[in-house]
Design a protein around this nucleic acid. Sequence first.
RNA 1: GGACGAUUAGCUCAGUGGAAGAGCGCGUCGCUUACAUCGACGAGGUCGCAGGUUCAAAUCCUGCAUCGUCCACCA
Length: 840
Amino acid sequence: MKLSKTYNPKKVEDKIYRVWEKSGFFNPDKLPTAKKKKIKKFVVAIAPPNITGSLHMGHALENTLVDILVRKKRMKGEKVLWLPGTDHAGIATQNVVEKELKQQNKTRFDLGREKFIKKIWQWKEKYGNIILDQLKKLGCSCDWSRTRFTMDRNYVKAVEQAFLHYYKKGWIYQGKRPINWCSRCQTSLSDLELEYEEKKGKLWYIKYKLKAQSAKRKADYLVVATTRPETMLGDTAVAVNPKDKRYKNLIGQKIILPIVNREIPIVVDKLVDPKFGTGAVKVTPAHDLKDYEISINHKLPLVQVIDEKGKISKAAPLSFRGLKTLKAREEIIKKLKKLNLLEKEKNHNLAIPKCYRCNTIVEIIPSKQWFLKMEKLAEKAKNAVKEKKVKIYPKNFEKIYFDWLKNIKDWCISRQIWWGHQIPIWYCENSEQKIKNTTSKMGFAGDVVPQVFDNKTQTYRLRNHGLKVGEKVAFENSITGEIFGTAIITEIQKTTVGKIDLKDKKHWKTYKKLEELITAFKRHHPEKEVNTDTLVWIYTYRFESECLPIVDDKYALKKCPSCNKGKLRQETDVLDTWFSSALWPFVILGWPKKTRGLKEFYPNHFISSDRSIVNLWIARMIFSGLEFMKTAPFKTAYIHATILTKTGQRMSKSLGTGIDPLELIEKYGSDATRFGLTWQTTGVQDIRFEENNIVMGKKFCNKIWNATRFVLQQTANSKLKAQSSKLQFKVQNLTKADKKILKSLEETIKSVEKDLENFRFGQAAQNLYHFFWHDFCDIYIEKSKSQKEKENTKKILLYVLLTSLKLLHPFMPFITEEIYQRLPLKRKKRFLMVETWPKL
RNA sequence: GGACGAUUAGCUCAGUGGAAGAGCGCGUCGCUUACAUCGACGAGGUCGCAGGUUCAAAUCCUGCAUCGUCCACCA
């Protein structure tokens, strides 16, 4: 068959991909060398793209580079497995489907959880595999027969197993803490899921009046500086640094919180930076992590003034309730000015945390969440890299990795969304109902009842609350959420605690929320003084279910195994997406079952990812692998470059700066796109994307095509047939040009090998390009036209072409395969994909 | 505030102690047994700035400037 004058990728690529798929060689078990006993393996797990995703430049680069390595290893005769799949991507996917619903003027709440999840599954079936098809377009040689999804049936079971494992170890606990909260997504977010936006803001200097005037001090107030005045509504102290001489004699004194008129203490804490602002800091434990720490050190109460919707809560004075935080800020400033309590304001730059999925400002609010203890896991992860069991390439990312692990906090693994792995904890409904009945009798919603702690006697007192002797209660610290004890009630005391008279039951019924207790008391007893000496610490106690939560395979039981009556209800929170992604390298091989795949292909050898998920994903895979498999999940984690626009901007759909790799493939062909991208991968820095490089790739394809046409013309009517990959030519008759091209080829083989071993993809591509275009085409082919030893020259032409095709195949698989199929080779034809990699 | 990286031709980038390189772009000539998506030849850079080490510095050291990334802070 004659070759057309120019190379047309459209006629070739899809056809070739189908043939490859049919060959079965993407599956390591079907490789020609599969049955050899001692065979090197090369296993890579894909970084599973989100089901919402469509292929972007990052994916294209990442998977091209992996495919280069994978194809090269396959040609070297190794047993190669590239495991593909997709990630359910909790919030991202939920958002996409919610947006779709919004067009019909519906929210997920209109549908309800079950129907909404069903809808997402439908969406997933329809669109979820698009990105995998796009990877095929790119030429990725994954074993599609092993495709997995992070929420397929067995994956769900695996995640439950992992959770159970941690739970049994006592590493999973529930706690109430200030966490990052997205008021739009209505869920908690981890620190890594925040994006900061630099913004010009203000620092306000606010006067807090001292309760007692001091003779030594001229002013009767203290000035605190804050960037977030609205949180002052939840202040429960003012803190200063112990070394700060300015405030030395104020320590222990009381101060009056403006607007709210709450009396709060002045405490000392070394967490306070004396250089910032005035050195005196307002402490809002509910809405600031550092303040929260201070509150723990000083047993300060926690007043939540911002609710889940990002609005000012009922714990705040009436006039601010229901306002959004920014609006509340304005109002507070206005009011402070009116009261003449605003000393000054200064410009101050700040970084505002935003939800990385929806860009809403993230608030810190206290919330009950599930946590995974990180101490031991972080230790394991650290050691694995320190001991070089895992290499992170390039090495400077190891620093980022260690930095994160060094200061790690426990991992908040619960999310309040619907799409994801529902936390495998089951409660007995019977027991829950019992609690509800009791508490509602007492006038409280839920299972939490205010409890007053007497600071003087350091005891918790049970009041006349309708409980009966013999019933079991659990005590929960409302600040930490920590359950500090359970008790069976043995005695009911009718008593007054502190100065609050709680005997009057009609007051009790109004206390729907814990935070209202003090305010309510003040409202009813304005004449009485609420004194922090007698009453400060307000705790709650909670009824503990008679039946323990179940975290086990036994959940399949229909009835609660404890009481043998109640139905079981599953925890509604779902797990952080990364909890399941962390298990990826071994779950896709069959864990927790002891499968052959797991035995044969774990640990993996290589994984590649974007630099932004080194900690989010890579680090967590490492400790998960060590925890569940006792071995690190891979030997090398390669962090690839980030592709920017030519002007150095981030590529982003919303900014309109993204370039769609599929359009490039359409325009220039897959090989050209791959080659152009690889060409630019000369380092690990950012790549400013230059489309001209893809054009160059296209031209290069054409060059290869035409060089082939020439060689085929020369060899067409000749009896020459290749005997093997090493063609027989007469060594003694070599001309100068022959020798030169053969030597140059040899050097190219060496350098490509070496560059790829060191992940120098761009250099390898450039060397190949230079060799083929200039050494082979410009010089040798031209020279060959006038060489006398015709037969030998033809053999050398064919030999160099064939060898070049092999070297080029990992970079440009389609065109090289297509050409290989047309070469006049005598041997039984296979595929270039499984041809032998050139040896020296 | 801390750490790391970058700064080389018009553009995108290689080059880490021994005569400044590639691709694209640009100029001149050329359809010569594959390729005009091509070939031949060529122009274009005091290698961010200032010091220092060295026989020799784009390369090593110090300082500065600009840009970028990450971490912490952001009361």
